[in-house]
């Protein structure tokens, strides 16, 4: 059974083509991850699937229902956690859950039981009568996530659910997602964090500039890159020198030079280039090398390989790459 089927989904905002001919299928019970930089079109795709935005072109079905023609039916079976918290600040956790539960016409008694069960599950029961505005982002997000689940939706949309959260809550939310999925809920997740997608998703769609550039399991995506004759090396230096970086950039045989921070570089080498050649290139600075590792490819590497650029916000993509330590991007 298909939870979601998107066919040529397109969204045009005035002069921006946000989503361009996106097609994919998500099987029931799966965790599907949308991976891509901010502004790539993930959220817009989710909003179209969740009936919040009308597609310019194309169709989509959620649980077999058309998102445009049968939007009411679709709404009954979906839950949404969007980038902004769907909670009224000045209402308590309980009041918020009560309100949104009521909108799904859940019987009062069952709704109360559900609220109690869920609040206990995310360890928020004792905060139920406190106003949401007094909560930390992590506490809010926990309430926000269970808000989306009160009516037991078949499909749960999570748009950047761990954005701005501390590592502890991030882990808690991920575990909760897995738990919800275990209970049979299909989960559609968007994220720009590669490791998150890698950790929870069974299938990943990589989206860049509104287009899906790859669609597969994380394993296959990484396997493909490996067989693609790319070797990934991470080198740690005492300091990075501009002339060294320039030399590496201009060396034929090195596909990519990615600066991780003030000390670490990640290099994509062509298979036939080899470590020996790299050592030769680096010999003038070899005293400064602290460590050198060969690595398994990550989804980040997959992304770079597929799109030819690093995973940074689409808006800042045009900015010239800088090698100054402070300006480095790390994922």
């Amino acid at each position: 059974m298909e939870a979601i089927r998107a066919e040529g989904l397109t969204k045009q905002f005035k002069d921006v083509l946000a989503v361009d001919q996106v097609s994919f299928v998500v099987k029931e019970g799966e965790i599907f991850g949308f991976l891509g930089p901010n502004g790539a079109g993930k959220s817009t795709t989710i909003r179209m699937l969740a009936t919040l935005t009308l597609p310019t072109k194309g169709t989509a079905y959620v649980n077999g229902k058309d998102v445009v023609k049968e939007s009411d039916e679709v709404r009954k079976s979906i839950g949404l956690v969007s980038e902004k918290m769907i909670l009224y600040d000045r209402l308590t956790a309980y009041e918020n859950l009560r309100l949104f539960g009521n909108l799904y016409h859940l019987p009062s008694k069952r709704l109360n039981e559900k609220i109690e069960e869920f609040l206990k599950l995310v360890d928020m029961w004792r905060w139920k009568d406190h106003r949401v505005e007094t909560f930390s982002t992590g506490m809010k997000q926990r309430v926000n996530v269970i808000r989306a689940l009160l009516h037991s939706p078949k499909v749960l949309f999570l748009d950047e659910p761990t954005l701005g959260l501390d590592p502890q809550t991030t882990r808690a939310i991920r575990e909760f997602i897995l738990k919800v999925n275990d209970m049979g809920t299909t989960v559609i997740l968007t994220t720009h964090i590669m490791s998150e997608a890698d950790a929870v998703c069974q299938e990943i769609g990589i989206i860049d500039h509104g287009k899906i550039v790859a669609l597969d399991t994380p394993r296959n995506l990484k396997k493909n890159i490996k067989s693609d004759d790319v070797e990934i090396i991470e080198v740690e230096f005492i300091t990075l020198f501009t002339d060294m970086l320039n030399t590496l950039q201009n060396t034929h045989g090195i596909d990519k030079v990615i600066q991780l921070d003030a000390n670490n570089l990640r290099l994509h080498l062509k298979k036939d280039f080899g470590l020996r050649s790299l050592m030769k290139v680096l010999s003038p600075w070899s005293d400064g090398i602290r460590a050198l590792n060969t690595l398994e490819p990550t989804l980040e590497d997959v992304f770079i390989k597929l799109t030819g650029h690093e995973m940074r916000d689409q808006a800042s993509k045009k900015a010239k790459k800088s090698f100054a330590g402070a300006g480095a991007h790390r994922f």
Partner: peptide, 9 residues
């Protein structure tokens, strides 16, 4: 606030 999405969905 984002709550409108919650109502609309």
């Amino acid at each position: 606030m984002g709550t409108l999405d919650g109502l609309l969905v």
